[in-house]
Structures are given as C-alpha cells and as structure tokens.
C-alpha cells in the first residue's frame, strides 16, 4: 500500500507539472513564430532543379522546362503543406484539448513532393514510367519519414473530469477558440499602435489571458463563469483597442488617450487577479469585475 502511494504520488505530480508546461507552451505560443515549423530540406533542396531548368532554357527544350517548372511548383506546394501541417501539429501538441487537424496536411504535402519527383523524372529525363514511379514513391516516403504523419486522434477531457465539470470537450474547445480569435484580433490591432507603453501593456494582457485559457483547459469546471468574464473583457479590450488605433493620430495626448490607458490598466490588473479568482470559485468576484469594466468603459467614454 505504501509502495503504491509512493509510486502514484510522484507520477501524479509529474503529470501535473507536465500539463502545466503544456499550458505554459500554449500561453507563450506566438502565431506565425519561426522555429521547428520550417521544413528546411523542402525549402532548399528543390533549388537544385534550377540548374537543369536553366540549362533546359538555354538549350531550348520546352518539354524539359515545363516539367521542371511543374516539379518545382509541386515541391513548393508540398513544402507549404508540410509546414502548415507542422504548425498545426505544434499547436495540437501545445494544447491539453484539441481536435485532430481536419486535413492531413503533412500527408498531402508528401503526396505533392512525390508527384514533383515523378513529374521531374518522367517528364524531363528519359526515365520510364516504372522508374519515375519508384522515384516518386521514395520521395514521398522520405517526406513522411522526415516530417511524420498528422495527428489523427482528438485529445479530449478525461471522462471523470468532464463529468465533474459538467461540460463537453467541444464546448471547452469552442470557448477557447473563440477567446483566442479575439486575442488574435487584439494582437493585430496592438501591432499598429505607435505607443510602446501601450503595446507592452497589451502584450502582457494577452499573455495573461492565454494563461487563463490554459488554466481553463486544465480544469474546465468553471467554464461557464469564465467564459462570460472572458467575453466581456476580451470584447471590451478588443473594441477599445480597435477604436483607439483607428484614431490614434488625433487622440495622442488627449483626455481620451488617458482614459484608454486607464481602461487597459484595469484590464491588466483584473487579468492578473484572474487566476486566483478562478481558483477561489467565487462567482461574486467575477460578476463584480464584469460590472467594473462596463461602468468604466461607459464613464471613460472609450467604447
């Protein structure tokens, strides 16, 4: 019995730590970030085809040139698909809950690469059909080995957790996707702000909101309350920021600009407290905070 407890405890701690890491990864995820999502071989290697393409142009061999161009286009398309697939996969891995990507992008990318190799071999050299097919198959196989296949299984809530929380996995995913779309809009609007302080503040707000989302992914028991809160605050922030960016030339150093800053200060402060509030399970606090933002938006006249 003691053994059992001893072995179970570290495991559960490890699981919690690991899932926390995933949450943090989700929170730090930047859209379109560089890194492991690049398929470098597919980006660079097909450039080799440029040499015979040029020599084909010099010699004036139209068939070869067309074949090389088509093959290059297919390799390029395959590279784009594989990179999209890698990005989806990274996203999928970073989440606690996720649906498997709908289109198997990495597989489609591998097929495009295989087709590229086939076209190049069959169209531009005197390779027979069989040999061209072999090259195509090998290129596709290499692509699958190098970049793997797409995730195919949905990652859902543990049944026990879902039952206790009284929510379905897709409800959580829907709420989080919705909130993330809004965060994306906020980030986009923030990028066009000319004020460093405000940009930084918005970046902090977005990071904190992502941390809250990661927390909801882990324990969706307060999804309903949290969702109402997120909708109010994210909508509020988004609308205010958008409005401000549209007129920031005229607004600088005016009272309205100061009001805008006040609203963002409130939002940042509330998000900072949010983690605690969600943990405490106190509905009142959330309702109060929702009211606070509403009145402030009205009073400051920024929404």
């Amino acid at each position: 019995v003691v053994d059992d407890g001893d072995s179970r405890h570290p495991a559960s701690v490890a699981r919690r730590v690991r899932s926390h890491d995933f949450g943090a990864a989700a929170a730090n995820r930047a859209p379109g970030g560089a890194g492991p999502d690049r398929a470098w071989v597919l980006r660079i290697a097909p450039a080799m085809l440029a040499l015979p393409l040029v020599s084909g142009l010099i010699v004036g061999n139209v068939g070869d040139v067309l074949a090389f161009a088509l093959a290059l286009a297919l390799f390029y398309g395959g590279m784009v698909l594989v990179e999209q697939g890698l990005a989806r996969e990274a996203d999928y891995r970073a989440r606690q809950l996720a649906k498997a990507p709908k289109a198997p992008r990495k597989l489609l990318g591998a097929l495009a690469v295989a087709a590229g190799a086939f076209v190049c071999s069959y169209g531009a050299s005197s390779d027979g059909l069989i040999l061209a097919l072999v090259y195509g198959a090998l290129a596709g196989l290499g692509c699958v080995l190098a970049y793997g296949l797409d995730p195919s299984r949905d990652k859902g809530l543990e049944p026990e957790l879902a039952r206790r929380a009284g929510v379905r996995t897709d409800q959580v995913i829907e709420a989080i996707t919705e909130a993330e779309a809004k965060l994306g809009e906020i980030e986009q609007a923030a990028a066009s702000l000319h004020n460093r302080e405000l940009t930084d503040r918005l970046a902090r707000i977005v990071a904190k909101a992502r941390a809250v989302l990661a927390q909801i992914e882990q324990d969706p028991s307060d999804l309903r309350r949290a969702r109402r809160f997120l909708v109010t605050y994210l909508d509020g922030t988004r609308d205010v920021v958008k409005k401000y960016t549209q007129q920031q030339q005229d607004l600088a150093d005016t009272e309205l600009a100061a009001n805008f800053r006040h609203v963002l200060e409130t939002v940042e402060q509330v998000f900072a407290e949010q983690e605690e509030v969600l943990k405490r399970n106190e509905t009142m606090d959330l309702e109060v905070q929702i009211e606070v933002l509403r009145t402030q938006l009205e009073r400051e006249g920024v929404a």
Partner: peptide, 30 residues
C-alpha cells in the same frame, strides 16, 4: 517501427536529398 524519431527524421531527410539529387542529375545529363 523500432526506430527513434531522430533516426527516422534523419533517414527521411537523407532519402529526400538522395532522390532529389538523383532525379536532378539524371534530368541534367539526359
């Protein structure tokens, strides 16, 4: 299949490079 992900990736990359090099060279010299 009984291969570490790293090895699989390396093998895949090598295979891709090899095939691309072969078809390029064959196309060039024919």
């Amino acid at each position: 299949v009984g291969m570490s992900p790293r090895m699989r990736t390396g093998l895949g990359v090598a295979l891709l490079l090899l095939v691309l090099a072969i078809i390029t060279l064959r196309a060039w010299f024919t």
